[in-house]
Simulated assay, not measured.
Amino acid sequence: MGTQKVYINARFLTQSVTGVQRYAIELVKSIDCLIDRGELGTGELTFILLTPPSQIQQINLKHIQIRKVGFLEGHLWEQFELPFYARNGLLINLCNTAPILKINQIITIHDVSVYAVPQTYSLAFRAWYKLLFRIAGTTSKRIITDSQFSKQEIVRYCKIKPSKIQSIYLGKEHIHDQDLDLNYIAKIKGQKSFILAVSSMSPNKNFRSIIRAIELMDEPDFDIVIAGGTNPKVFGSSDPLDLSDYRYLGYVNDSELRALYESADCFIYPSYYEGFGLPPLEAMASGCPVIVSDAASLPEVCGDAALYCDPHSPKNIAEKIRQLMNDPDLRDKLRTKGLKRAKQFTWEKCASETMTVIREVLKCELPSSTTG
């Protein structure tokens, strides 16, 4: 059997790195490592990253080719040029979007929040993603998603057969790939201890309830540090949060993020809706005790290694923060459980399970990969 081409939609290399782009980058790097170790056979597959001409993120790969193709950008490149350049092979789409006219493809749909919490997105964004999920989700060969919860939601909202959807958990090793920035730690570590919130500024992430919870606490003896960016083109309009009384850092790089996790006394993530929830896993892997909402995929990911709160109740969130910050033994217990829980989630395992899906679609008889 001749070499089969597997193209990867690398539009994510032109975007800022949030959870979706992180998944794509780490998965591609892990597949490259599997190739390097000879675990994917002896040349039956050729992997090629196809990027728009404005590639901005650098990714170091030994075996996967990177090609800049076409002249367009963004959705136009993805819908009209990408299918042409991937016409003679299987196309892998890792970031929710895919060309509607391509049939021989696999798409990762991380969540269907545009259906479940539509009020958090702009009308145009919502309409486009609903159309894309319905068409690409139906015509593609397989769908990959981040959790059993997300799989059930895709079946519920997109009416896709469960047998077509494979849930594959994400990994966490990337959080330790960067050197710890000691200068940044000194800069952020004031005289008070601090709780940390990290995410995009989507209304769905529920930062407003964190702020309200802090307001309900009588002058707490700790700071709150918030890190994350916003995208007004994506998220629906809402009253802006007043963060003037808090340490809002905006977008932070990977080295700074690691420093934040390892310096915080508590990580708070009361999100309403998640397909997976990468920040809590990163925090657990960094030895930071976590408080997360008892909603969506978060109990599935965090297990017994987190303290759970009601995302709809600032009062309950405040109670959980007090409970954790006033109990050093509980923090130590959750820190130990979190480190143990995080070991179950690896990018190598994610890559191996993704390769199983790819082989099933291609009907390749390659040697089984081993997972670490």
Rank of each mutant, 00 (worst) to 15 (best):
Q344F: 13
T354M: 10
K340Q: 14
D310E: 02
N316T: 03
A318W: 02
V301S: 08
H312Y: 14
Q323T: 14
W347A: 01
I321V: 07
Q323V: 10
A306Y: 04
A306P: 01
R322Y: 13
V357C: 08
E319A: 11
L334D: 07
T354N: 12
D332I: 08
C302M: 10
R341G: 05
R331T: 10
I321Q: 01
A306C: 03
T336V: 12
N326H: 13
H312S: 14
I321E: 01
D310K: 08
G338Y: 04
T336A: 15
A342F: 08
R322M: 14
P311L: 07
D327V: 03
D304Y: 06
D327Q: 06
D332Q: 14
G338A: 02
M325H: 11
I317W: 06
Q344R: 13
Y308G: 04
Q323I: 14
E319Y: 13
K349N: 12
D329W: 11
A306I: 04
E348V: 00
T356G: 00
L330F: 05
E353R: 13
R331H: 07
A306E: 05
K337I: 02
K333Y: 13
P311K: 06
E348R: 13
I317V: 02
Q344L: 14
D327N: 15
I317A: 04
Y308V: 03
L324E: 14
K349P: 00
L334N: 10
W347D: 07
M355K: 03
K349E: 10
A306M: 05
L307T: 09
H312K: 15
